[in-house]
Amino acid sequence: MSPAQSALFPAAEQAATQFDVLTLMLWICGVMYLVVLLFVALAIWRGARARAAADSPVTEAADPTLSRALAIWSCVVVLGLTALVVGSFFADRSLAAARDRETLVIRATGQQWWWRFAYRTPGGAWVETANELHLPAGRTARVEVGSTDVIHSFWAPPLAGKMDVIPGHANVLDLTPQRIGWYRGTCGEFCGLQHAHMAFDVRVESPADFDRWLAAQATPAAPQSGDPSVARGQVVVTQGQCAECHTIRGTAAAGKAGPDLTHIGSRRSIAAGTLPMSRGGLEGWIEQPAALKPGTNMPAVSLSPSDADAASAYLLSLK
């Protein structure tokens, strides 16, 4: 199995805290369950032995021994629950404590069916990207989540639990990643047709790598490829119908409705985790979005096969 989207392999402080609560729960509940199973087995065994006696049913409900046992059992249950409540309480406290250590602000906006991420640069400007979250290891990021349409939920299991993305509400989630690596997040709240394809990649990297990445993201688009069709692709994308919804900084494309494509070639996947990034994947997505993601708001654009190929070459070159 893949640990990329698993809560069982925590890679951040928050998920680790939650994993600890899970461990505590499993121990306490597991022991209690075994006790219940043991009781049931004993009752069956003892009841089966007693079956031979064929006198009339017992109509006296009281039984002093059982009453004492019930009292003990209740105390055990109360103790177990108290331990769990206290454990939860401290976990909640430690989740809340991260708020004082925030060093980075990220805005995550859920939309049907992709994620808009905006980073606040040290200079105070906002840099926009989509469907790929980069986080510096060891620093606490403040993720402000918001929705433009319906309720979504921001969920990267190896990093932290969910935070619902609710129109009209400003929610904040803290992430303090610890292990460098690639992870995956997704939408946790049913949000319509393509709820299944509303994922995002998460890259946890060293602070130095992160700063380099953010600086690169802040630059305008610059195609990096020797492919001759890139120039044609740039015309197709930035002067055609794509530009109405997508922004590619440094070109005429300035639409706001869809994901920012300025550095799309550097991302790991296409269409909110639907396909891995590749030239063929981009071409398929441009030509037949509804075949890959039925119900998507990305329309089919009628391009000649060569134009579609050129467009994907251009997009892939936007590193």
Binding site: C29, D92, K162, F190
Partner: peptide, 18 residues
């Protein structure tokens, strides 16, 4: 027992809607 687990606010954030 899993109900008790989902009742824990911090843990439920990982469990809810899964």
């Amino acid at each position: 027992m899993t109900g008790v687990m989902t009742a824990s606010a911090p843990l439920d954030l990982q469990l809810t809607d899964t």
